[in-house]
Simulated scan of single mutants.
Amino acid sequence: MLTILGKETSINVRKVLWTCRLLDLDWQLEPWGSGVRDPRVPEFMALNPNAQVPVLREGDTVLWESNTICRYLATRAGDTPLLPADALARARVEQWMDWQATELNGAWRPAFMALMRGSDRFDAAAIAAGVRDWNDKMGILDGQLATTGAFVTGAAFTLADVVLALSVHRWRMTPIEHAALPAVEAYLRRLEGVPGFAQYCGPETP
């Protein structure tokens, strides 16, 4: 059985758990993370030297980085619309997954960490700049969704939607001035019909 090391309140752990559910995989959650069990110990860092959750463990297999874990699980499962076999279609899914990790995550960090996690590392100017950047990045996603009229890469729900649905939910839940993004709002309503969305993007898990 797959073991996922992490906690359900972590946005990156929820990516992996939602992927497991969509693929109908059996897994168990081993509690690790801030406020649960400190990952900055030799036992955990032998698995992930970054001391971050999630970590996947299955026998001798150990993986970290949430988007990589999601891709691995989908590839391991075989034929699944979550990660198309066609090279170009797959690249488009992975393109938006990488964008989420490198561009969108960096944009939300100042505002989210200050307003939702109580961090004092960011002053008012940094928070305001972060909000502008966050809304600008969300505008890029809004344009993509307006083009597809459905999910991030087209008519089918994919791993790009797993990771970006969680990010969109975080944007909506953070008390900032939100840009008017009609395609994103329609996307959120569309996601309500996807199995697992209510559990992993619920109001108690920003």
Rank of each mutant, 00 (worst) to 15 (best):
residue 4 I to H: 00
residue 5 L to T: 03
residue 5 L to R: 06
residue 5 L to Q: 02
residue 6 G to F: 00
residue 7 K to R: 15
residue 7 K to I: 10
residue 7 K to F: 10
residue 10 S to M: 03
residue 21 R to Q: 15
residue 22 L to R: 03
residue 26 D to N: 13
residue 27 W to I: 05
residue 29 L to G: 04
residue 32 W to Y: 14
residue 37 R to V: 03
residue 41 V to D: 10
residue 42 P to R: 10
residue 42 P to S: 15
residue 44 F to K: 00
residue 48 N to C: 11
residue 49 P to N: 14
residue 54 P to L: 08
residue 61 T to D: 06
residue 62 V to S: 02
residue 63 L to R: 05
residue 68 T to A: 15
residue 72 Y to C: 02
residue 72 Y to S: 04
residue 73 L to A: 06
residue 76 R to E: 11
residue 81 P to S: 07
residue 81 P to T: 11
residue 84 P to L: 08
residue 84 P to K: 02
residue 88 L to T: 12
residue 89 A to Q: 12
residue 89 A to G: 06
residue 91 A to Y: 07
residue 92 R to Q: 15
residue 94 E to Q: 14
residue 97 M to E: 03
residue 99 W to R: 01
residue 101 A to G: 15
residue 101 A to I: 07
residue 102 T to D: 09
residue 102 T to H: 11
residue 115 L to T: 06
residue 115 L to E: 04
residue 116 M to T: 12
residue 120 D to N: 14
residue 120 D to W: 01
residue 122 F to D: 02
residue 129 A to K: 10
residue 133 D to Q: 15
residue 140 I to W: 13
residue 142 D to G: 05
residue 146 A to P: 03
residue 147 T to N: 07
residue 147 T to I: 04
residue 148 T to R: 02
residue 148 T to V: 13
residue 152 V to T: 08
residue 152 V to G: 01
residue 153 T to L: 03
residue 155 A to S: 14
residue 155 A to C: 07
residue 156 A to H: 11
residue 161 D to R: 03
residue 165 A to I: 07
residue 166 L to R: 00
residue 172 R to W: 10
residue 174 T to F: 06
residue 179 A to S: 13
residue 182 P to T: 13
residue 187 Y to D: 00
residue 191 L to F: 09
residue 195 P to S: 12
residue 196 G to C: 08
residue 199 Q to N: 07
residue 200 Y to T: 01
residue 201 C to W: 00
residue 202 G to V: 11
residue 206 P to H: 12
residue 206 P to G: 10
